[in-house]
Amino acid sequence: MKIVELVKLVNGTVLVQGDRQDRDIKGGFGADLMSDVLASIQPDAVLLTGLCNPQVVRTAQVADVAAIVFVRGKNPPIETIRLADQEGIPLISSPYGMFELAGRLYKAGLPSFEKSVDPDCSCE
């Protein structure tokens, strides 16, 4: 799924365009705890979150997240936007809540990119 399709599906407002419009979003993930994201997200996922601080962008960069969608119409502070712009990570704000967003994306064919927790699994 491309960024343009994602924006349409979530009825989103684009806050930061990002570097690569052609990047393929391969799955989805929703969390407010960044450690949960770091623990089990696979590369090239869209991250749905209610957390708006710059750490979201850092987490996204470290974990190869393709785009960030803020739920419930949240608008992040300017530091978050600046960092995302600098790192080239798309930021989108959607009026829908986390459950609704996950449902919409799942229905549109986007699989879950949240690995189930297995104490023995590695990061790969």
Partner: peptide, 23 residues
């Protein structure tokens, strides 16, 4: 569950205005 389309009107927020792309 009503997932009908809501108005697509885009409000330009302060964030939009301050968002500066690389170009």
């Amino acid at each position: 569950m009503d997932t009908g389309s809501s108005p697509k009107e885009r409000v330009v927020t302060d964030q939009d205005a301050q968002n500066i792309t690389r170009v």
